[in-house]
């Protein structure tokens, strides 16, 4: 069974400890929500999972294990992580537009990702799989011509083209309007239903009911709680739920 595991992940930046102890696992087909207030260490955890912050004394400690097709690797160095990036592990960014090359069309970038995965379908087909109703038109657009929702969809198309087994999605719906948020979530649900594992990082608990299969709560650099639904949270997670309820009214 494919699995992405973080055990006792600790991330330091100089004298500051950003993450003290993050432990969780994501199975194939699962959508695990990593929640916590801003500054609780979610984004650096995501970057460390892909080895974008190097494992080194005083930077990153702990263990990341990736199991794909029965083979488990515990990458530590950049060279260990490199072959895992893309195929085994993918990243969806909060600012999807900034994650696209400003000088190349969406179609060219999706195709380039597909080529890395060793496949060359038409760009329009890849974009259609990410839910674009008019893929041939979108393929010709440049990132600055995309709306926020379209940019995130394009980023999903790139991840699809790359065929990553696990996707780490860092606030992928933040800043999008509610109807677009729902569409993106539906798209991500479809990815998980197709057997990919998804680590969904967010501060917005309203997105989770009916979407996440499990919730991991992060508080001041530690993963403190885990539950299958936000209704079952008791400790720090409960406080987050209540804080959200206060601003969001009866949504939760």
């Amino acid at each position: 069974m494919d699995e992405l595991v973080a055990e006792g992940l600790r991330i330091d930046a100089g004298a500051r400890t950003l993450v003290e102890d993050a432990s969780f696992h994501v199975g194939a087909g699962e959508i695990v929500a990593l929640v916590g207030s801003s500054g609780s260490g979610k984004t650096v955890t995501a970057r460390a999972l892909l080895g974008m912050i190097p494992f080194a004394p005083g930077r990153v400690a702990g263990r990341v294990a990736v199991t794909v097709g029965g083979v488990t690797t515990t990458p530590r160095t950049d060279a260990d992580f490199r072959p895992l990036r893309g195929g085994a592990l993918g990243l969806l960014w909060q600012d999807a537009r900034a994650a696209l090359d400003p000088l190349r069309t969406v179609g060219a970038q999706v195709l380039a990702a597909a080529r890395l995965a060793g496949i060359t379908p038409p760009a329009a087909e890849l974009l259609a799989r990410a839910g674009f109703p008019d893929p041939t038109r979108v393929a010709r657009l440049y990132p600055h011509e995309l709306s926020g929702g379209m940019a995130q969809r394009a980023a999903i198309a790139v991840a699809l083209a790359r065929d990553s087994r696990f996707l780490v999605a860092d606030e992928p719906t933040t800043g999008l309007d509610p109807s677009v948020q729902r569409e993106i979530l539906a798209q991500l649900s479809a990815l998980a239903a197709a057997g990919r594992g998804l680590l969904f990082i967010t501060h917005d608990l309203r997105l989770l009911p009916g979407f996440a299969t499990r919730v991991v709560v992060m508080d001041r650099g530690r993963t403190v709680e885990e539950a299958t639904s936000i209704a079952d949270l008791t400790g720090a997670g409960r406080l987050l739920v209540e804080a959200t309820r206060k601003v969001a009214g009866g949504v939760l």
Binding site: M52, A99, A155
Partner: peptide, 14 residues
């Protein structure tokens, strides 16, 4: 240091 370069790296581009 642009985000898209990090993204390329995250996609496994050499």
């Amino acid at each position: 240091r642009a985000e898209f370069v990090l993204a390329l790296r995250a996609h496994g581009v050499p």
